[in-house]
Write a protein that binds this DNA or RNA. Structure first.
Lengths: 221, 221
DNA sequence: AGCTGTTAAATTGTACACAATAATATTGTA
DNA sequence: TACAATATTATTGTGTACAATTTAACAGCT
């Protein structure tokens, strides 16, 4: 029976995003209700909302579960993500002002610092900032929201991602290309660079997930 | 107090999509409750779900309203839609089997028939079928769902769309190009053709909306 | 033992009552 | 009359009780 500062919706979402609630886990109304110190009603509200955004799966009269994204769906989601981020890059290449470019180069150098120190947590953070900035420069707020939604659905898995040092290096090189293409205003090139960048991440993800499910099924047997 | 066959969620969604509930309209819980012959609880469930998908806007303690999409947001949504449908076309060009091509050509000829008779309602229907088919051929189910969501959010406005004869003709020509590019397996060309097709629609929409809001503000004054 | 139909327990769906808050109306004063 | 403070009304948010349905447990049968 904890006191909480934000809404039940946010608290539940946070639990999913941080991995306290793992994919496939059952989301029990009464348990959460007494845990949050509220009745079932607001819990149900949150569950329905999260189900609508895709973070939960809800089956009538059978309860809610944390959405379990299989390798197939994951790959599909990354394909869409690559396309959307590619569009951001196109827009950014077309619209970026001088100060935008400057900010982008600063963000990129921060990524470079993080990569050099080998601090993968910091790189994760700076990388997010880098992509966020491009989305902002893109200027399409609807596109931003759609990407945010997709990111949330992937975040539960991203937590498991490999923190390989070479990935950080190659990622940085890709970022450099993206910065260059945006700087030069070449929409098509920026789009292609960003799409490739995201697609590679997706492939890494897919590999990881394939490994995990293989070891899982092995240990279950 | 009507009896209803589907869920409150679907019924409410239907009212928005068919224009019985216009953008900006207030969605009153008690009114809907007695109208559907149920209590407020299931109505609230539906409202929260629809708000999460973007069809409704919900303000705490102030009620829910049918989402009112301004010209800016509308344009942004169409840009995203163009990108997503473009991706479908790319995928379709890569994956289409011989029978897929055949089905696509049949669907296209049905559009042509509708255009020739000048039946805009029928063309609307056949056009949807044509696009649906391409999405299916694309094979990305996640992408399909995302497009469906977006379509729903636009449908409330699409109802208002011009049924100009020349648009039907040019649309058909664009369809022909799309079919050709998919047939030839040229991903990039299919993508470009589809994006252009959707973008033109979006521009038409924006024009229409601009006119409407102009006359609206004029009549209000 | 394996299967099937019935019964019991657990869990979700709905209704209703009350609490909290925002919107509106009213009244008093300058 | 115009404005401001207050009171009233309406509407949403939450808690709780009960109904409906699914899941499981179990007994009886082949």
């Amino acid at each position: 029976m904890k006191k909480l500062k934000f809404s039940v919706h946010d608290a539940l979402e946070d639990r999913i995003l941080t991995g306290q609630l793992l994919p496939g886990a059952r989301v029990d109304e009464v348990t959460l209700a007494e845990e949050f110190g509220v009745s079932r009603t607001p819990i149900r509200q949150a569950i329905f909302q999260l189900a609508a955004t895709g973070l939960l799966e809800h089956f009538p009269r059978r309860g809610a579960f944390v959405a379990d994204v299989g390798p197939q769906l994951l790959s599909e989601m990354f394909q869409v993500m690559a396309e959307l981020e590619g569009l951001c890059a196109s827009n950014a290449a077309r619209r970026a002002s001088a100060s935008d470019i400057e900010a982008l180069e600063i963000s990129h150098s921060l990524c470079a610092e993080a990569a050099q120190t080998g601090d993968s947590d910091r790189y994760y953070y700076e990388n997010e900032a880098f992509h966020d900035l491009i989305r902002t420069i893109s200027g399409n707020t609807f596109l931003q929201k759609e990407i945010d939604r997709l990111q949330k659905r992937l975040k539960a898995y991203r937590r498991l991602q490999l923190r390989a040092r070479d990935r950080m290096k190659t990622s940085l090189v890709e970022h450099a290309t993206i910065v260059e293409t945006i700087k030069s205003g070449d929409e098509a090139a920026a789009n292609a660079a960003m799409r490739a960048h995201i697609t590679i991440q997706g492939d890494r993800f897919a590999d990881l997930l394939a490994n995990l499910s293989r070891t899982n099924t092995a240990s279950v047997k």
